[in-house]
């Protein structure tokens, strides 16, 4: 039996916990027994391991949040003081962390570390990730196609009212005409009433 079935699905959320070493003894032995006899789950578990290894090798993007908050607070509090004085006024560790965060951002923004991240690039080029990326796009394509059908039905106004209008549009600006044509806009933009 090569395909994952309903018996397999109950382990779906156990893989991550298992890899964290946080699955209790009974669940662990149930999982191990099942995986030993199920090729599909064995490869699912192997994939989870690869994904995990891939995530570990990604560049650490976490900016030191407390430092960022400290900077923001200073900027707010000391509005009109010259910038160099604002920076000097920061407590030392916070200033160091904030500068480190800025350097990280600048480095990322200019893509300077891109060519020097062979490990993380490897993770992102893992066939499983490439496949998942294609699947994500295919899923969105089907979502768009389904939305288009909905848009031609009687529900378009309702959808707009309930779902579209209250949503943040911040990402919208980054989508220019190049990727969205007029036909597509007809679905995503306000329908003419009449």
């Amino acid at each position: 039996m090569n395909r994952r079935d309903r018996g397999c699905e109950r382990f779906d959320d156990s893989f991550e916990v298992f890899l964290d070493g946080e699955l209790d003894a009974d669940a662990t032995s149930a999982l191990e027994t099942h995986v030993a006899g199920c090729e599909a789950c064995a490869s699912e578990l192997a994939l989870a391991r690869r994904v995990r290894a891939g995530l570990r090798s990604l560049p650490r993007l976490e900016a030191p949040a407390p430092a960022v908050h400290a900077v923001l607070a200073r900027v707010r509090d000391q509005g009109d003081r010259p910038i160099w004085r604002q920076w000097l006024a920061l407590p030392r560790p916070a200033a160091v962390a904030a500068v480190a965060a800025l350097v990280l951002l600048v480095v990322l923004a200019f893509g300077w570390i891109r060519p020097r991240q062979p490990e993380s690039r490897l993770a992102l080029e893992d066939p499983a990730v490439v496949r998942a990326t294609l699947e994500t796009k295919l899923a969105l394509a089907h979502f768009a196609s389904a939305s288009r059908r909905v848009g031609t039905g009687l529900g378009r106004d309702l959808l707009r009212e309930r779902a579209l209008l209250p949503l943040a549009r911040s990402v919208g600006d980054s989508l220019d005409g190049g990727t969205v044509n007029d036909d597509q806009r007809a679905v995503s933009a306000a329908p003419e009433r009449g």
């Binding site: 294609l134 295919l138 394509a141 768009a144 949503l167 995503s188």
Partner: peptide, 24 residues
């Protein structure tokens, strides 16, 4: 984000993606 997902999804071509997945 319904609107954005649909807008972005429109840019992807289903047959192209399906054949890329088949060849993957």
């Amino acid at each position: 984000d319904v609107e954005q997902l649909a807008a972005i999804g429109q840019a992807f071509d289903i047959p192209t993606l399906e054949s890329a997945l088949d060849a993957d």
